[in-house]
Nucleic acid binder design. Structure first.
Lengths: 233, 233
DNA sequence: GTCAACCGGTGATGGAGATCACACAACGCT
DNA sequence: AGCGTTGTGTGATCTCCATCACCGGTTGAC
């Protein structure tokens, strides 16, 4: 949204926002050590199976976190928003990255080498705690992902779940029933584990049932309760 | 707290991650603080959604970790063997338990209250490390679970994957192609996200193809490669 | 302009597996 | 013995969705 050139002052403000739960001293140190780069759309920060090099922290933009099967099919775990670190579990445990991270739009990403992160963790207990918190948050989010995907075989239900999730992220917005749809049908399919065609058909069905309206890239979901009723069914 | 963490990460990554591998001092302290109880089969240590009370460490027996959907269907995440802690992510993050833990056989379980664990983690860097390692291991295991479940729609493939996993756990045994089958078909179905009947049929098919032999509760898998060939297909 | 690439809509078809409905074996219980 | 419980084997049917195929719209490059 803010298209200003980022100078140092704004950088500091950004840091405050990004590491708000960290003491200012630690946040500042991170700011000093990390290398911030702007990536174009489609850049792969790291790929599933690679040895960990460091953590990436999204500053601006959106990053797609996905895993892919031997047959080439893809499952999108989640879209990562600014303020969130990527690859922490891999870096801390020394295991290879469990997923692939790819920018969805031009993004500004801070990179912190594994050794630097570990050194800083040694210096600042708060940082170590921060990292642990994020790993367990990722774990919880992955568990939810499994629940939503496996325990509802109907594609309708999965899509309804996804959309309710969008609404949940939107509670703070001015118009909470409007969602800006920045995903293709194909990507939505990859998020809920179905084919593109099925997503198209489901959207058509939802529109026919007046569950959603679409104008351009904004999606209006007037009746959240009706959507939720599809889930329990 | 973090002082010892970083120095020992590589070391610990190489070591087996069990209770006994903690430094003797820490292990002894844990031993002092934890309450060890014997549970009968079917005891629920904690349930999905409950506020975290503490961690449970399996000393003897086997514990089933599962999540369940609104419709009552169940997905078994994994069976937890002695030496492994349960509920660490929930305890350190303060979130509710992400899964349900239930004993599969009479088991001896140590319990450590949340506040005690956190206190001990501050006291002993190695314990904090141990906890973090386990959380990221759980995260990685959950990611693998997702990959195996979503990215292979044929139930045949999922079952083959599961069995290959059994063989992997068995490499140390005297006869590595024999697996003691301590699960019902229903439970196997819950592990791979299919119905009991499908598991029965798949077993029958595998027997017909000479991929497995079964005598009592021991399963013989003579040809691992043949089983693996079902996975890529 | 034209052409290519991508996205979205929709019909037709087929197949994998859920589900229902039994039957049967093993086991513990009274 | 009979009886319930639990696990298993298997047929018949039915539903959902993947897949193939094709078409139209939009964007963007040259």
């Amino acid at each position: 949204m803010a298209t200003h050139i980022i100078n140092n002052i704004q950088k500091a403000a950004l840091a405050d926002k990004t590491f708000c739960d960290l003491p200012p001293v630690v946040a500042h140190t991170l700011e000093q050590e990390a290398i911030t780069t702007t990536y174009p759309t489609g850049a792969v920060l790291f790929a599933e199976g690679q040895a960990p090099r460091g953590v990436f922290i999204v500053r601006r933009g959106r990053v797609k976190l996905s895993i892919c099967g031997s047959d080439g099919r893809t499952l999108i775990l989640r879209m990562v928003e600014p303020g969130c670190p990527l690859g922490v579990a891999a870096v801390v445990s020394g295991r290879s990255y469990e997923a692939t991270a790819e920018t969805q739009e031009p993004s500004e990403i801070s990179f912190l080498r594994q050794c630097d992160l570990l050194r800083l963790m040694r210096l600042h207990g708060e940082l170590a705690l921060w990292v642990t918190q994020h790993i367990s948050a990722d774990y919880a989010s992955t568990c939810r992902e499994i629940r939503d995907l496996i325990l509802s075989d109907s594609a309708t239900e999965k899509l309804a779940r996804l959309m309710v999730g969008w609404l949940d992220q939107n509670i703070a917005a001015k118009n909470p029933s409007q969602v800006k749809l920045a995903l293709t049908h194909e990507e939505i399919g990859q998020m809920i584990g179905t084919s593109r065609e099925t997503v198209s058909r489901l959207f058509a069905g939802f529109k026919k049932q007046r569950l959603i309206q679409q104008s351009g890239s904004t999606l209006v979901i007037p009746n959240r309760v009706a959507l939720e009723s599809l889930i329990t069914a």
